[in-house]
């Protein structure tokens, strides 16, 4: 079912997903970003995931759940990494709409995300600003 963005209100939870950070997902992520930092191999014998892989899942979940259309722009991102996460951990990622407004042919959506591990401890928080073209309006003037 298509989403009517006009109907979304600040304070509304727009995404809630659970993920297992398994080896396959991390392998795909590491291949994509070519991470060579070499700092992810051990801490108390646990292999740690790159923190941006958690952000990738969180933003990806929002893109899917909000059916963000092609032509939209991700213009700003804030991230707070609170706790390192080992491979194999299960995470709960939630996103809440904080702003939903239209100007200049674009819909501005600000989303706050919160990620917890399987013990309910916060591991990451984020704030994303995404702009969507408004159908029927001229959206050519936005910055990328």
């Amino acid at each position: 079912m298509a989403i009517d963005y006009e109907e979304l209100v600040p304070g509304q939870r727009v995404s809630r997903r659970s993920y297992v950070l398994d080896g396959e997902m991390i392998a795909d992520y590491m291949a994509a970003v070519q991470d060579e930092s070499g700092m992810l191999d051990s801490r108390d014998s646990e292999r740690l995931v790159p923190p941006m892989s958690i952000a990738a899942l969180t933003v990806g979940g929002v893109v899917q759940d909000l059916q963000i259309p092609g032509g939209s722009l991700h213009v700003r991102q804030e991230l707070d990494f609170v706790r390192a996460v080992p491979v194999g951990e299960t995470l709960l990622c939630e996103a809440t709409l904080m702003q939903n407004s239209v100007r200049g042919g674009w819909r501005f959506m600000v989303l706050e995300s919160d990620v917890q591990d399987s013990q309910g401890r916060k591991v990451m928080a984020g704030k994303s600003t995404v702009i969507l073209p408004v159908p029927g309006e001229d959206s050519s003037g936005a910055e990328g």
Partner: peptide, 26 residues
Amino acid sequence: AATISEMMTAAFGGAWLDSGRMKIRF
């Protein structure tokens, strides 16, 4: 943007994983 995290991990190690913050504009 993941390359920023890679750079910060290379510079600050595990501290970045536990306490890193970033605010970026695309």
